[in-house]
Design a protein around this nucleic acid. Structure first.
Lengths: 254, 254
DNA sequence: GCTGAGCTTCCATATCACGGAAGTCTCGTT
DNA sequence: AACGAGACTTCCGTGATATGGAAGCTCAGC
């Protein structure tokens, strides 16, 4: 017939819908229908139908100008994620204490695949400015939190990360896999990590692991200070104590 | 044949998937497959397939004990919601100032349909304990923020709310539609709202509207204080000033 | 009034979702 | 050890539901 054409074989509808949602990023939090269709590799009419369905539920919302953005319903749902908001709520008072005591930046992160996701960040009064964003991702290889999370990640992930390309941020960034492996072993024996000017040339961070009720490492805290301000070895006990306190709070809450 | 039966007519796969996600609440953040199937009114094998798809993408994660919970990916996505995390980030410094100055509780909320959603809550040092939870919902009729949001909601929503059942929390809760309409008119002319012991018998809240760059009311702030501590009319200018500052910050950020 | 970009609707087709049933796994009980 | 109940996983014949090309629509710019 004139109308109607063989439906193209594609993928599960659910996956396609989430792939469209995935196009929203910090850098581009608002997208038009045609941008979604183009970047998502989906025919316009299909994108239109999927998006309409997402709007109906509240996963997306529409601006007066016609562009779409992530809806409040999705934010509400996300707030139920134990590794996101849940962790954040339990840890917050401890992180605030840590920030008060040290007057430095505090970071809380979890591992997601071969990267880390920042769950909370508290800026110390007059501390080094830090670029991280809550909800943002970063490599596991360079930061204090990253080294802790990588050190306690499954071997599979470690091999994956160490075998792949390791991003360099400063001239002191460790990119040699063998040396990184030794650093990770140190992190496991010492119970804390040190990242000395590996991300920026003037900052240093000390991280420690947070465990769940089964003893698994589920998150990491770190202090980020200006290089030369304090010795990492002075900071380590402070961070470890805070991490241990959070671990206990976590175990109790379950 | 023995195997295979007529596929039951149901609904869009996307809707069904999100309806399953909707079963997760603050009270029940972890659910097993059979709970999802039962409460979602979905055959077990169908639930299994849908959930598997959600896990593959990262919307759900699985515990060691087999139960499911909202995944980190969803939290990351939610963090991109302009009316959720986006608003929160812009408003936070102002809310902290307000909390510091007044030493009382500060609340930030937006309207979602015929309810409100709390986007941020800051507990003042030694202030009345407040039960609200970030990400939680509440009626539009009783609180300071709720009255502001309702006063500036579309007529359709107002009629819907005032025509429906109005929840009573204390003996002072206003449940008479006509009287509520007069209160809403006052809110619009005064530029602030007062909820005097309408939610709990010992607390009082004063709310003010936050506007976007087009002048639309998109959110509301309030101070929640113990009854008798301070006059609402003393608090009003403070809250309004804060709301106006947030409105400006919001307009600039766009 | 024409052009073009972005959006919306339509509908014949067949892909993909559907779910009953059978199989597996893990307990706790006899 | 054998049994049984409950929860989960896999299988696969069927057709309901998602698909996308094309046509229609809206609006701004020329």
């Amino acid at each position: 017939m004139a109308r109607g054409h063989p439906a193209g074989p594609t993928g599960p509808a659910i996956r396609r819908a989430f792939d469209l949602l995935d196009l929203f990023t910090t850098a581009r939090p608002r997208l038009t229908l045609s941008q979604l269709a183009r970047h998502g590799g989906v025919p316009l009419s299909t994108a239109h139908r999927l998006v309409a369905e997402l709007v109906r539920w509240g996963a997306l919302e529409r601006d007066p100008d016609g562009s779409y953005h992530i809806g409040l319903r999705l934010w509400e749902l996300g707030a139920l994620a134990p590794r996101g908001q849940g962790l954040r709520e339990i840890a917050l008072p401890f992180l605030e204490d840590l920030s008060q005591i040290s007057r430095e930046n505090v970071q809380l992160a979890v591992r997601e695949g071969a990267e880390l996701v920042f769950v909370e960040r508290i800026a110390g009064t007059g501390a080094v400015p830090v670029f991280t964003r809550v909800g943002g991702r970063f490599a596991l290889t360079a930061t204090g939190v990253g080294l802790v999370l990588l050190a306690h990640a499954p071997t599979e992930i470690q091999d994956d990360v160490l075998g792949g390309r390791i991003e360099r941020y400063t001239e002191r960034t460790v990119t040699d896999p063998a040396r990184l492996r030794r650093m990770l072993a140190d992190v496991r024996t010492n119970g804390f990590s040190i990242s000395d000017r590996q991300v920026t040339t003037d900052s240093l961070s000390v991280g420690a692991p947070i465990h769940d009720h089964l003893g698994q490492v589920v998150a990491a805290v770190s202090l980020v200070v200006r290089h030369g301000t304090a010795s990492p070895h002075t900071l380590a006990p402070l961070v470890r104590t805070s991490a241990r306190a959070i671990s206990h709070a976590l175990a109790r809450r379950r």
